[in-house]
């Protein structure tokens, strides 16, 4: 009987090791230490820097439910940092988070804004993308979140059209505020 019990405990231990924490809203990775601050080097002017930090702040305000602690807080810095914010050109995307992975964790996140092919603005403007709206989306990827759906697939969220983690972005449009879906995605990603 005691042997069986030990076997059972071992089986449970093995099962815990095997259990995946991935959810549908996750990119497949997250930062290993959920309480440490992630700094991003940003050498842009104050207009861009402030809009980017404002995008990060939306995520920073989402706390862990059980502890009320801030999870993976993000800040721009002008000191050197492994994570950097860039501009680029000759791409079809407006912006992209380019990750580096280590084992099953994110170890570095770079974000590139394609201001060579697209034009950015502060606020809604014709044929331009609002910097903060694009930033809040990309820094959602930078903490490990995936899109709420991919095009051609049905969205799992009723608030989809308002979600920051929608796959595409519109010109002349402001979409800066996290929906409850977006907030829950972060809380689920860093649940345990």
């Amino acid at each position: 009987m005691r042997v069986r019990k030990r076997f059972f405990i071992l089986a449970v231990m093995v099962a815990i090791v095997f259990t995946s924490t991935a959810s549908a809203k996750s990119l497949g990775y997250r930062w290993s230490n959920k309480y440490s601050t992630i700094y991003f080097y940003c050498g842009f002017n104050s207009v861009w820097t402030n809009a980017i930090q404002a995008g990060m702040n939306s995520w920073n305000s989402v706390k862990e439910i059980s502890t009320s602690k801030t999870i993976v807080p993000m800040y721009v810095t002008t000191s050197s940092s492994k994570n950097k914010i860039y501009t680029t050109s000759n791409q079809t995307w407006i912006a992209k988070m380019i990750p580096t992975y280590s084992g099953s964790n994110l170890s570095k996140a770079d974000v590139a804004f394609n201001n060579g092919d697209y034009t950015f603005s502060v606020g809604a403007a014709a044929n331009k993308y609002d910097i903060q709206s694009i930033a809040v989306h990309e820094f959602g990827h930078a903490i490990g979140l995936a899109h709420c759906h991919e095009i051609g697939k049905k969205c799992s969220s009723s608030s989809c059209s308002q979600n920051i983690m929608q796959p595409t972005s519109k010109v002349n449009n402001i979409r800066r505020g996290l929906t409850s879906y977006d907030k829950e995605s972060k809380q689920v990603e860093y649940y345990n």
Partner: peptide
């Protein structure tokens, strides 16, 4: 046995799958 299973899992586990991180214009 558990140790062997855990080692084998880590050695041969499938690579993690990652989803799109680009934002495209809504065309």
């Amino acid at each position: 046995l558990s140790a062997i299973v855990i080692w084998a899992y880590n050695e041969y586990k499938p690579l993690p799958v990652v989803y799109c991180t680009s934002t495209y214009p809504d065309y």
